[in-house]
Amino acid sequence: MKLALLIIDMQKAYYTGYAKESMDQASEYINYAVELFRGKNYPIIWVQDEDKKGNVIQGTIGFDLIDALKPKPDEKRIIKNYNNSFNKTGLLEYIIKEGVDTLIITGYNAVYCVLSTYRGALDHDLMPILLKNSLASNTKENSKFVEDISEIISINALEKFISGANE
């Protein structure tokens, strides 16, 4: 089993209303997971949504990741135009090249892009697992709903799992 961490659409354009509070809370768990993955040299994949109709375009402030998240230059970036991060992107090819079969998924928006990507991973015979408390949404109920219908792992279990994996 080889893991990768997927962080979806944690962008400034969506950092408003309840989503702002939700992203702030999710960022704490995401940042902790990022450090775990960096410590083991596991792939970290940053996904950003480009929505020309919504004026979320590369090069604009809204396209940028929120300030709480700090990807490294050598970490993979994927730009998507659909809810499912696998749809017409290089994500699957990258995952195959890296030998990844299990994705720890985090990010925004729980009921749209996160859930679509989770199901997309299943369609490609990958094992998607959501990191508990790392999902952001426009409502608290939406994040809980997605966690309730999906495979999840707590940050403590992930830490224990990663610290013992491949050793």
Rank of each mutant, 00 (worst) to 15 (best):
G17A: 01
G17I: 05
Y18W: 14
Y18H: 14
A19Y: 08
K20W: 01
K20R: 14
E21Q: 13
S22E: 08
S22T: 09
M23H: 02
D24M: 14
Q25G: 06
S27C: 11
S27Q: 03
E28M: 13
Y29E: 15
Y29S: 15
I30D: 13
N31F: 07
N31P: 10
N31Q: 14
Y32M: 14
Y32V: 11
V34P: 09
E35D: 15
L36F: 09
K40P: 04
K40Y: 05
N41T: 00
Y42S: 10
Y42V: 00
I44E: 09
I45Y: 05
W46V: 08
W46L: 07
W46Y: 12
V47G: 09
Q48F: 00
Q48E: 07
D49P: 00
D49A: 04
E50T: 11
K52F: 06
G54P: 00
G54A: 10
V56H: 00
V56P: 01
I57M: 06
G59W: 02
G59V: 07
T60P: 03
F63L: 08
A68F: 09
A68V: 13
L69Q: 13
L69I: 15
L69K: 06
P71G: 10
K72V: 02
P73R: 04
P73W: 01
D74T: 05
E75L: 02
E75M: 02
I79P: 02
I79M: 11
K80Y: 05
K80L: 04
N81E: 13
N84L: 04
N84F: 03
F86H: 06
F86E: 12
F86S: 09
N87Q: 12
K88T: 13
K88H: 14
G90V: 02
G90R: 11
E93F: 06
Y94Q: 06
I95V: 11
I95L: 15
K97F: 09
K97V: 01
E98A: 03
E98V: 00
G99F: 03
G99E: 09
G99A: 04
V100A: 01
D101A: 00
D101S: 12
T102V: 03
L103I: 13
I105W: 11
I105D: 08
G107C: 07
Y108T: 01
Y108A: 12
Y108W: 11
Y108S: 08
N109K: 05
C113I: 01
C113M: 01
L115K: 12
L115A: 02
S116P: 03
T117W: 03
Y118W: 12
R119H: 13
A121N: 08
A121G: 10
D123Q: 13
D123F: 09
H124W: 10
M127P: 00
I129G: 12
I129C: 08
I129W: 11
I129M: 10
L130W: 13
L130Q: 13
L131T: 14
K132R: 15
K132L: 14
K132W: 12
N133L: 01
N133E: 15
N133F: 07
N133R: 14
S134L: 13
S134Q: 11
S134V: 13
L135V: 08
N138D: 12
T139I: 04
N142F: 06
S143R: 06
K144V: 14
K144C: 07
K144I: 15
V146R: 07
E147P: 07
E147D: 13
D148C: 04
D148V: 02
I149G: 12
E151C: 05
